[in-house]
Each structure stands twice: as structure tokens, then as C-alpha cells.
Design a binder for these strands. Structure first.
Lengths: 360, 360
DNA sequence: TTGAAAGCGCTAACAG
DNA sequence: CTGTTAGCGCTTTCAA
């Protein structure tokens, strides 16, 4: 019995993970020596180092990061709160942030918190702070200031934890916010349409309480004015939705009004898909008769539509990466604040004539 | 100067967060009393409790979860490794898992690890184990066994950490795996088509190395046989992609072959969208002439297509929730293993006649 | 070259 | 009712 038990205790996986104390004992050295042998910082006899390392390997020793964090006062951990979990931008943003942080061996706590559920967000924040995160990144959609949906600054009590807002910004002068430059993106799209010879443009877009809507409209107007053109109000169709159905409906309206158009800039790709579909249904060719440009460069739609959609890409994954990197910088003490607008790029495909031939 | 400094030290946010020691001192009680006052477990004079609580609030005391984890031997933290970060199922799975875990105050470490990057996955696993996660959940696509893409069991060295695979399974008899029941989903779709009077069915689907492809095919065949029908091989079109373009191409092939069809079951919704588009282009009505059923119930496509797509929903968010709950159970010592197949449901929309009128 | 010992912030057993 | 004390696993000083 005794013999059996002993054998077991040698073979069976130990209940508790090995500690550095176990390693030290197994190697026949002191605790501190074991520590130095594994992490350097002290001159030790090579033989000793080897003995300790061998013992550590044998025992599958893995330093307990909780204790290390406690001692260093840094957890190598960042909280990521998404206030809009299911939005189109969520996943690329998440992967971008994770990419940048993982490269620096920083782990990410994932927190979903619907805007309507303040209690859950509170719980997440408390949990993150208790777990000693080195910083918190908040993700949300940007709504116009007077919208009830507009994102509020996150209340984290003290000023000790770096805070960063991605894809949206808040009215906190001390906060760092990274957002896509919607206006510039719209400029790219409009310039492309004009450069390919279109003169009679329309804009079909989504609900106005999304800040992207007025911003993109502004960009479009700017460019047209710079070219001595105007965008009549009746050529701007603002819908209650961002989907294909609205795209189809909007085209119907334009056709009913017998509008004279040769180019349509859409607020996003799903609208653009609906637009193309409705145009086709009327025997109108894209891009030959009317060029169509989308926004988002959402591949499942843009790349596989017929024709493939020219679209503005907000480079959200990259924005996420930049957010992650900025957070790392803040953690290292580089203070930063303000709103940083990152550029969009235009992806040329078949729904517009690529007469100018360039991707910007 | 001194006075100023003192004032500052009172007003300015403390550099270090308050510890329970600070609270005890501020309340004029011993350390353990402070601890018990805040968490109960000992009879204390109400007055003492209040004093401690007041001090804690004043100092914005927040217990250090790292230390608590260390002591309890449980970190209230779970690692989530996504081996296929950008797949359609990733986000609902993530939110589902997070939902279930957050409800039990368990935090989620988010780790993206492309299948092709074993080193990064290794790094993530090491990091998770070092951070003492209570369990690890792995997400991946399911490929057929002999595919080089097929997911391998995660190597976590010891048997101490509960492990769970979601949306896919691995060849580890001790592992618990939760997957959608693709076959049953295909049965639902096929039964629906038959119930609404269709007899001449075709199947347009994606690459065979996705296990879902043979499974869904099997379900379709089963049901047809049960109804005394057969699915001729030339009515099964297996593509190299899952996108609209392939959907359009497949329809072209069927038309070229002058196939006699009144119903098409598609391997996913994007294919279905392409199918509908190609049928429309030929003046074929959906569902009047040919009924179309998709798979995935991916709302951006299914809900806003014209006509709206009937589609099989794998209930992935729910699968994620179940995975989270199962993980909690495992953490609490309830051992579990094997492959659990969760049912799909059929969402009836306009691309098929809902003659039987029921949602199953 | 190495070992002993003092914490990190908290919990829980042990003493009043 | 409350205080003292011994750890948790590790890093880092201080001694040898």
C-alpha cells in the first residue's frame, strides 16, 4: 500500500503546480538561487544553473504570473470593453488590439457591455480594476453629440489607469481617442468619382445620429465644391437603416424623381449592394451608366458582389493595432490625449471606372 | 512648502492604490478586523463595521484580485483561444462565452491564434497558464479528419486545467467538445422544402474539407430517402468557395445542364444570395419557381436579401453560452467529456414557401 | 558564489 | 468581539 502510494505520488500529476520552492528543493539550492538561476541577474556557477533548469523542466515549473504582477506592480494585462459587441467594426478592432498587445506579451480581458446595461459595464470595470489591469480600452460606435446613444467617458474612479477610446471619442480632454477619418474617406470616394468623369452625384446613406453620416456628407460636399460642383439636397438620401433594403428603396426614389445621375456614393457597402441590385433591376448598368462606391470595404459584400464594389476602407484592424500600441505607450508613462483621426484608403474594384487607376 | 506638500498628499490621487492595511489604519482597527468587516464571516460591532466601510469608501479601497486569486487557488479567469479569428462564427461565439462567464463574475482572456502560427498559440497558452486561468476554451472551424487544417488538441502539459473545444472537436477522448448539429440542420431545411411541395432538389455547397459539407449533405440525403426520393450526384454542386460568386456560377451550371429543379438547399447564406441573384437574372422567380434555403442565418445577408432568405440557424451565440456554462461546471469539478451536438433551428423567410407554417 | 530573510496584499487559523 | 500571526509564491535586499 505504502509502496503503491509512493509510486503514485511520483507518477501521477501533482495536485498543485510546482513552485519555485519545489524547484529549489529538487535542485538542492536555496530559493533565491533557484530564482536567479532561472531569470539571471546574478553570477552563478553554470553547473548550478543547469541543475536548477533541469529541475524546473522536470517539474514543469511555470512561474506564477499573479505573484509576479503583485511584486512588479504591473499585470501585463489590459481590459477591452466593447460597448457595441455586435457591430461590424468589433471583430477587426478586437483582433487589431490583441495583435499589438500580444506582440508585447500583454494579455487582453474581453468585456462585452451593451450600452443599455450600465450595471454590467460597472461590474466589468470593477472586475478589471480589481484584477489590476495596466490600462483599459473602450470600443464604441460614434454618435452625434446630442444623441442619447452618445458614449460617455468611462468612470474608473482614479486617474491611475490609462484609458483609451477606439473608434469613438468622448468629452474627456484627458482621454486619448483613436477614430477613423470619415471625412477624408468620403473625400477619397468623391474625388475618385469625379476623376473618372462623373459629374451628377448622389449620396445614399444611413441614420443621421451616426456621426459618420454628417462627416462623410461633409467630405463629399467639400470635394464637389472644390470642383465647382454642388450636391443638391434632393440628391442626398438619408435613411433609417444601413441595409440593402434601404439601398433599393433609395434608388427607387431617385428613379421616381427622374434624377439625372451618373455616380452614387453610398454610406456603406450593404446600401451599395442594394443600390446595385435596384439599378440592375431597371436595366441600368454599373458602372457604365452609373458608378457606385461603397464604404467599409466589408469583404463579404464588397468583394463578392456583381460587380465587385469599389469601397472606402477604414482600416479598422490597423486602427485597433494603433490603439494597442498607444496603450502600451501610455502604460510606459507616455501621456497622451486628444482625438487622433486615422486615414481611410480607397479600394478600387469594378463598380466604378478606375479611370484614374490609382489606389490612394 | 511643507504645508503645500501635505495638502497635495491629501488631495492628489495617491500613487499607489489603497490596501486593506491602509483601510485598517484609517479606521483604527486591526488588519483582520478590517478584512472581516468588509467581507463578513465574523461577528463585529456594527459601529466597527461602519467605520471600516467608511474608511474603505473614502480611500477608494478595492481588494486586489491577484492576491485573492493567489490565496484561493482560483483566478476567476478563463482563457479563450480562437484559432480562426476572422470566421463568421467567431464573434457570436465570443459574445456567447463571455455572456455566460461574466454572469458568474469570471473574466475572459482573449487570445487570437491563427492556425498557421503555432508559436503564437504556444505563447498564448504559456501566458494563460502562467496567469493561472481556471480553464481554457478553444474555438476553431471543423475540418474533416484527414485535412491538414484539422484542429489538434491543445497541449497544456498537465491535466489540471479544464479544457473545452467549441464549434469543433478534437481527437482527445478526455476533452469536452460542443458543436452544432449540421446534419440535423440540413434535415430541417430539406424537410421544409419537401413539406412545401418541392420534389426536385439541388444542393449547392462549399469545399469538402469543411466537415459541415459532408454532414449537411448527409442530412439532406437522409430526409430525401425517407421520403422515397433520391438526390442525384449531378444535383450536388461542391465549390471551392462559400461566396456569392460560386452561388452564381453553380446556378449557371444547373441551367446549362437544363436541370429540372424546384428547390435549392445552399451550404450557406452567401451562396444562397448568389443563387437567388443568378436565378433572377434568368427571370426565374424565387420562391415561386424555385425555393431557396440558406444556412447560417447570417442576418446581414439573410434578412435583407430580396427575397428574405429562409435559413438554418446554428444558434452559435447560444452554443457559446453553453460552452461558457460547461466550463464553469468543469471548474467546479464536474468532469465531462465527449462530443455534444447542439440542435439548429430553421428560420422561415420569403425565399421558400412557408407552406407548413412552422418554425422548428 | 550562495543563503537567509524581508516583504508584496490578503486570508484564515490561532489566540485572547 | 477583536488582535496577532502564519503563510500564499515570488523578488530582492542584506549577509555571509
Amino acid at each position: 500500500m505504502d509502496a503503491e502510494d509512493q509510486e503514485k505520488s511520483l507518477e501521477a500529476p501533482r495536485e498543485r503546480a510546482a513552485t519555485i520552492r519545489d524547484v529549489a528543493a529538487a535542485a538542492g539550492v536555496s530559493l533565491s538561487t533557484a530564482s536567479y538561476a532561472l531569470r539571471g541577474g546574478r553570477k552563478l556557477r553554470p553547473e548550478t544553473v543547469d541543475r536548477v533548469k533541469a529541475a524546473a523542466a522536470r517539474l514543469e515549473y511555470r512561474p506564477n504570473a499573479l505573484m509576479q504582477s503583485l511584486l512588479r506592480g504591473r499585470s501585463y494585462t489590459v481590459g477591452l470593453i466593447s460597448r457595441e459587441p455586435l457591430a461590424r467594426f468589433s471583430l477587426p478592432l478586437l483582433t487589431g488590439v490583441e495583435d499589438a498587445l500580444a506582440a508585447s506579451h500583454v494579455s487582453v480581458f474581453l468585456c462585452f457591455a451593451d450600452r443599455t446595461d450600465a450595471a454590467r459595464e460597472r461590474q466589468h470595470v470593477e472586475s478589471l480594476l480589481a484584477k489590476q489591469v495596466d490600462g483599459i480600452i473602450v470600443l464604441d460606435e460614434q454618435f452625434v453629440d446630442d444623441s442619447p446613444l452618445a458614449s460617455r467617458p468611462l468612470d474608473i474612479g482614479n486617474g491611475r489607469t490609462p484609458l483609451l477610446y477606439a473608434y469613438h471619442y468622448v468629452a474627456d480632454p484627458d482621454a486619448l481617442c483613436l477614430v477613423p477619418d470619415h471625412t477624408q474617406g468620403a473625400c477619397l470616394a468623391t474625388e475618385h468619382l469625379l476623376a473618372s468623369g462623373r459629374r451628377h452625384l448622389a449620396h445614399i446613406t444611413g441614420p443621421q445620429h451616426f456621426e459618420a453620416v454628417p462627416l462623410r456628407m461633409k467630405g463629399m460636399r467639400q470635394v464637389m465644391q472644390a470642383h465647382g460642383l454642388t450636391l443638391p439636397d434632393e440628391m442626398v438620401l438619408i435613411g433609417d437603416d444601413w441595409d440593402q433594403r434601404w439601398g433599393r428603396g433609395a434608388v427607387q426614389r431617385l428613379l421616381d424623381a427622374k434624377a439625372n445621375i451618373d455616380g452614387i456614393f453610398c454610406g456603406n457597402d450593404t446600401i451599395a449592394v442594394g443600390v446595385v441590385e435596384a439599378l440592375h433591376a431597371q436595366g441600368i448598368r454599373v458602372p457604365d451608366d452609373i458608378a457606385v462606391v461603397g464604404f467599409d470595404n466589408w469583404e463579404p459584400f464588397a468583394e463578392y458582389n456583381d460587380p465587385r464594389l469599389t469601397s472606402v476602407d477604414m482600416q479598422i484592424h490597423e486602427l485597433g493595432r494603433r490603439a494597442g500600441q498607444a496603450m502600451l505607450a501610455m502604460i510606459n508613462g507616455e501621456l497622451a490625449s486628444g482625438i487622433l483621426r486615422l486615414p481611410c484608403r480607397l479600394v478600387l474594384r469594378d463598380s466604378s471606372n478606375a479611370a484614374d487607376g490609382n489606389e490612394r
